[in-house]
Simulated scan of single mutants.
Amino acid sequence: MSVMEHGGNLGEARRLFPRAPDLEAAMPWIDLSTGINPWPYPVPAIPPGAWTALPSPDAVRDLEDAAARCYGATSSSCVVATPGTQAAIQWLPHLFPAGTVAVLGPTYAEHLRSWRRAGHQVGETADIEALGAADIAVIVNPNNPDGRLADRDILLRLAAEKHKRGGALIVDESFAEVMPQISLADMAGTPGLVILRSFGKFFGLAGLRLGFVLAEPAFTGTLREAMGPWAVSGEALAIGQAALADILWQNGTRTYLRTARQALDACLAPVMTVAGGTDLYRLVETPNAPLVFQRLGTAGIWVRRFGAQPHWLRFGLPPNEEAYRRLQAALGDPAGPKGRPV
């Protein structure tokens, strides 16, 4: 079997497990391979003009104003909307001269790939102190997939060091919505600090393709020029503005996700070691990870595996009681030895 590089590819799941139950209506695949909220923001009515007219600069400014207020940035001039965080990850390496890049890992692999493809000298390290030697440092906080957190003071010190040498600290906060207290968004505009925020994961609308970069106004202006006009779609502007302003929904969702994560931990812990994660996904460790992956796939349950860490699996949140029932049945007898489904 070829090891998947990203979650969410049910086509790959069906190719790997052609005999898995997939009766579409009766027993469809359960996709637990992503860290996307399975209870999405209720999409409001979208003005017809969002589909028929080019996105207006005023609508973009309104969205960036909403993002600044939601994230706690001091000024919307420090915020630029992008068509997804992945797009920003691919653009950023082209905004800096070729140099050395250190990524705190293991983490989301697209950071390494994007900087390397842009001609930078890239390395991965597990030691946050080792990031100081590079021109550019990249940290995912909270980290994907293990939920590791970086100290705020260390991050701000790194940003200052990178600024002195003409580089930057890139902090990917794609999963920070579930723990906003760890975000550096209130420091947006600090020289040498570039923050990435994802919209689709927490709001459960990944197909909308919307994200944000928070940085010094000169840098956000450079990125906006690099993206060109109409980078964010009209429907993303309308839905994003409504969702980012809905603080009541956000607070309630954080509570709901925490409860759902606790329920998933209770399901996984009897048979595997829950090693970390966030309220949107859980990382487990087991020497039998390939066997568990196979067993779940045969039962029509798709989870995230890792080629470089074959003892890891990542589970997203099951969307309903039926999904929990099928997951528990596929994992086997919880009374069996830890890490050994029976």
Rank of each mutant, 00 (worst) to 15 (best):
V79C: 08
W230C: 12
D265S: 11
A330C: 12
T190P: 03
P217A: 00
Q309L: 15
V101D: 02
L158T: 09
P48L: 10
Y256P: 11
I170H: 02
P40D: 07
L54V: 08
R69V: 11
L280N: 02
I154L: 14
K201D: 15
D246F: 08
G339W: 09
I30F: 09
F219Q: 04
E173T: 04
G234A: 01
V292H: 04
A275E: 10
G84T: 00
P47R: 01
M187P: 03
L223V: 11
G200Y: 02
E216R: 11
A137L: 09
L95V: 10
V274H: 03
A150M: 09
G49L: 11
L10Y: 05
L257N: 03
V232H: 03
N141C: 08
G200A: 02
A236F: 07
L10F: 08
C267S: 14
E225A: 15
P337N: 09
I154P: 03
G105H: 00
G72S: 11
D31S: 00
D127I: 12
T100Y: 05
A50D: 04
L16H: 01
A269M: 12
D65V: 07
I182T: 11
A245G: 14
L244G: 07
P217C: 05
G277A: 01
V194M: 03
L205H: 10
I195H: 10
R304D: 06
L169S: 03
T125L: 07
